[in-house]
Design a protein around this nucleic acid. Sequence first.
DNA 1: TATGAATGAGACTTCATTCAT
DNA 2: TATGAATGAAGTCTCATTCAT
Lengths: 202, 202, 202, 202
Amino acid sequence: MGNKVYSEKEIAIFNGVIALMEKGVNPYSIKVSDIAREADVGKGTIYDYFTSKEEAISQAILYNIKIEIESAYSRIRAKAGFREKFFEILYIMAECVDSNVSTFSSLLSAGGIQEFYEYLSEYRYDLSDHLSRIYELYEHLLDTGVKEGIVEKVENSYYRNMVFSSAIVGFSQYFGHRNFNNDISIEEAMEASYKLLVKGLN
Amino acid sequence: MGNKVYSEKEIAIFNGVIALMEKGVNPYSIKVSDIAREADVGKGTIYDYFTSKEEAISQAILYNIKIEIESAYSRIRAKAGFREKFFEILYIMAECVDSNVSTFSSLLSAGGIQEFYEYLSEYRYDLSDHLSRIYELYEHLLDTGVKEGIVEKVENSYYRNMVFSSAIVGFSQYFGHRNFNNDISIEEAMEASYKLLVKGLN
Amino acid sequence: MGNKVYSEKEIAIFNGVIALMEKGVNPYSIKVSDIAREADVGKGTIYDYFTSKEEAISQAILYNIKIEIESAYSRIRAKAGFREKFFEILYIMAECVDSNVSTFSSLLSAGGIQEFYEYLSEYRYDLSDHLSRIYELYEHLLDTGVKEGIVEKVENSYYRNMVFSSAIVGFSQYFGHRNFNNDISIEEAMEASYKLLVKGLN
Amino acid sequence: MGNKVYSEKEIAIFNGVIALMEKGVNPYSIKVSDIAREADVGKGTIYDYFTSKEEAISQAILYNIKIEIESAYSRIRAKAGFREKFFEILYIMAECVDSNVSTFSSLLSAGGIQEFYEYLSEYRYDLSDHLSRIYELYEHLLDTGVKEGIVEKVENSYYRNMVFSSAIVGFSQYFGHRNFNNDISIEEAMEASYKLLVKGLN
DNA sequence: TATGAATGAGACTTCATTCAT
DNA sequence: TATGAATGAAGTCTCATTCAT
């Protein structure tokens, strides 16, 4: 399913872009020369593989989301139990915030990720693919939760997805508004998110 | 508190910036000459009132958030009943999406609004102010809901705020992922959000 | 008749381009930064007046041709007598060669001036204007020659123009092939050209 | 006499350059990658045979001129009669215009061919060779014309060459100023050129 | 105070040339 | 010998900022 194989150089460029974003550079502020330096390729090489800076950055973001989601999927499957699986998602979100790469969480944000980088809207199709994958993940969690008798089988898929996304985004706001939450530990924030999730699914 | 009075020109400039954003221009793509044209002032005038383009845009966004929040506050107070008030918030969010100006909703997003425009992080103090105002709003809603016996008095303020924010952001994802939700009407999305809110607060 | 008025800056830019060409720089090798330095304006200024480097150079060439032709016209009218007038044309051609600016003579060349600078073909209309002016000049010369009884009234305007142009270009080849003509003085070359002209027009 | 033998690859490269020029690409706009594609060789191969792009193009032009002149020589010798031979030259010029490759006619133009491609001035010696060949051709024509009693034996070689060149360039202007000559057929233009030639040589 | 013409730093992109294969 | 992937110097053009009016 769309498993494009990337050349060594393309991956170097992707990693360069991602490294910059992890350093806290916002995609609009990334310069071609920065990517080239970070990826250790010539500036011209970027144009051998992509038609413009925007394409290179967009593809890098999509590549990164794909990797992030697949990695999340593995980590979550590896955990046993509904609560453990959901907390794993929250841990992943926390790591994303630490690494400045919130591309993944942007997928769940209000305006969608195209707000994060306008040129991404060209890749609507790929974004939908990623979202589908996230919804699959939610289904997997719900199944586990139902089996454990923690939550009920929610038939309305829109509501189900919304509850998961809401609880996750609700948690990630903990970081965005950190200065407000000085007296709240990250564990408490996770518990709060989990509480909302369970209530929402019952 | 912090009710800075703005000159006529400053407001013209703010409105120019906002008009551009309403036209769908992303803040990173706004040019000084665009602002000047839109605000009908000379380019030099912008530098008489602001030290840089970034400051002008940042201040405009903050100004806009303040107005949006105050307007929201009035509209919500004007509604009677917990459900009506909450739905009013959702209507406001829907309007934001239509007008392309999601500055307000970005406040609630995962990465916080500084992700939306990196230079805003200089204004941490003002952003906190706005967030406080939003939390006040949540308190007002909760009071109404408690009086009506719809929800319980939630003492944990972190959890309370999180539930409101989650439900609101959860709703606004309806727009971000619209192509996924073709079979869901906006009213159904609102009902889903309200359902999560009530469950979360009980 | 298309007497566009140029601003001070536009003329400075034109003169910058022309100065470069007089220094022997071929239009394809002119760089924007060269024009800016030569014209003593900022690089950006060039783009305030022209949409591209090519447009700036093209317009400069057209401007120069116009000036060259008008200057030629005056000089030639100022001379009395057919022979004197024609020799004045040849003197002008010789000066053109010395100053490296053969835009004028290129007008008469085989491929036409668009061969000299491909982007000029966008300005077909202006070029026709200039050519008309040259043909007027030929008519003026012919009238003088007829009055003096040196040449006959040639009714076929195509033939008439061709004879003048041929004689002039024939002379200017003297410079292009100078190493071949070491034993021929410039005066002899002029006499040869005049001889062909008179024979052609009788 | 300078009959350098070219390798297969060199000729492929020359033909690539010429093919591009026949497509209407001006020598300053030719890219190495274009030549490589057109000649079906690797880009590196071009540098195995030439030290720079400019050298490759210059040599290709010289090679082409040589071929054009030799071909012209044969065609003209094959014709019987002064008039027929001269018209053959004009037909050749017309074909040059059609095929966009006016390198040959540029040789006769005002500024000389170096105006056409500045790097050619490095090859002054070769250009002289070509010009000599053209002058030989003129002599051959003149001999024929004298034998036929159409023209007189012109002793002044400068004048003789000038008359031929002038008449030929005068004809080729027909194409450069085609929009001016809508009512003139190509045959009429040829007759005019011939008329000038005969008058000039009598 | 208000302007917008002018500037030039610095961005993106191209493409001649190299060199490992 | 032949190639073309890779490079980075150098070009064009944009646009934030200044400053004379």
